[in-house]
Structures are given as structure tokens and as C-alpha cells.
Computed example of a mutant assay.
Amino acid sequence: MFHLPAMTWTLTAVLLAGGSYYLWQALRSGLVTDRVNNTLHALMNTLMAAMLWNLAPATLLAQIGLLAGAALWFIIQAVARPEYKLLCAGTQGRIKCAYHALTMAGAALMIALMTHPASPATGQTAMTMPMPAGHHAMTSAPHSQGMATGTAAAAPVLGLTPGVLLTLLFGAAALIFLILLLRNRATTTNHHPGSRRRSTRTEHALEALSATIMALMFATTA
């Protein structure tokens, strides 16, 4: 995916470190939902690391299905009724679950994009269409070619490709998590942070790193 081996190794190390942290959190958590959520995050990090090296290509459909199921699980948590206390509670919790659903869906889409690269512009296909014989062909060919050229030229302007859109989206998410991390550190400068606050800072740091990696990986598909 990346031409620089040093970048690939660095991103792999970060993803596996994050996956190990989530797995550790899953093992020490007392709530079933927390165990499932952290396990899914550990699995996503592992699959993204494998994606960097194009490992296990025979299981790509299974990976996509698993990540899509994980996205659905987080969506269910995000829209669950308030009386289900074990699922996402409060506005902040629902936003968090919605973002996690986005990351799972984004990872699934990334695998799909890696498997099926974007096809050539539709304008090229239109130019190869058979034309009627006679005077109609002579007059319509330039018109068709002009339309095809105009379509191909206007496509990047009228809409963003999924790769570009998700690169911008996860880049913005990385910036937001970085701001939250710095704000959290500033509020604890004159206090002795507890384990919960340290865990929050760690989660913000991992989310910022994960979003940055997602943005970089989607940038290669743009």
C-alpha cells in the first residue's frame, strides 16, 4: 500500500500496539458489552495491520462481513432505547458509538477498495461505443466525444470520491481527538489523575492515531 517500508512498519507497530491495548481492556472489563466492543476494536486494528501487508487474501469477504457486522452492532448501540443501560448511554456515548460504527464501516470499505480498484472514467467507455453508419455517425461522434470529455472533466469537480471524502473525514476526526487529548491533559496539570482519566487520555490518543492511519490509508485510494 505504501512505497516506504519504514512507514508500513511504523503503522503496523502502532496498529498492533493499539490492538493489544484493546484486547487487554477486553480481558479486564467486567461488562459483556465492553468486552465485545474492545474485542472488535482489537480485531479491526489487526485486520488493518494485515491489510498493509496484503495478508490472508482468501479471507477478504469474511473480513468485510465481520467488519460490516461490527458496524451494525455499534449502530444498534447508538440508537438503542435509554432503558438499555448496558449499551451506549447519553449523548456523548451515542456519538462515540456512531463514530465507532463509522470506523468499522470505513475499514470494511477500505478492504473492498483494495480488492476492487476504481474502474476507469466512464467517459472512456462512452468513446468506445459503436456509432451508427452514415451521416448520423459523422455528426454524432464529435458530439458524443465532447459529452464524454466534459463528463470526465466535470466528475472530480461535481463530487468527491469515497477515498477523498473519507480521507477528509478521518483527518478531521484525528484533529478532534488530538484537541480532546490536549484539553484533557491541560485540565489535569494541577491534579493527580486517576485511573479513569488516564484511560480516557489513552483512548483519545489511540483514537487520534487510528483516525490518522485511516486517513493515510484512504488517501492511497483517492
Rank of each mutant, 00 (worst) to 15 (best):
I76K: 12
A174L: 01
A49V: 02
M44T: 01
A215G: 11
T8P: 04
A50K: 07
L178F: 07
W9Q: 09
M7V: 11
F218P: 00
L27E: 11
L206R: 10
Q63S: 05
I76D: 12
P162V: 03
L66C: 12
A78H: 08
P156A: 14
R183D: 05
K96S: 14
G90V: 08
I111V: 11
A152W: 00
I176C: 10
I213H: 12
F170R: 04
F218V: 04
M127P: 03
H116T: 13
H136N: 01
R35P: 01
M147C: 09
I111R: 02
V32F: 07
L61E: 04
A49R: 03
T200V: 09
T10P: 01
M1I: 15
T125K: 05
T59F: 12
H3L: 09
G163I: 12
A78D: 02
H116Q: 15
P162S: 03
L67I: 01
M114T: 14
I64R: 06
Y21R: 07
T10Y: 05
S195R: 09
L181Q: 11
A174W: 04
N184W: 15
Q77Y: 09
M110P: 01
V36D: 04
C88Y: 07
A70K: 07
A118L: 06
V164Y: 06
W73C: 04
A26V: 02
A89T: 04
G90S: 07
P120E: 07
Y99V: 06
K85N: 04
Q63W: 07
M51K: 00
L23I: 10
L160F: 09
A173H: 05
A222Y: 06
T139V: 15
A108S: 04
A211K: 03
A141D: 06
G194Q: 05
E83V: 11
F177A: 08
A152G: 10
I111E: 12
M138N: 05
K96A: 14
A68D: 14
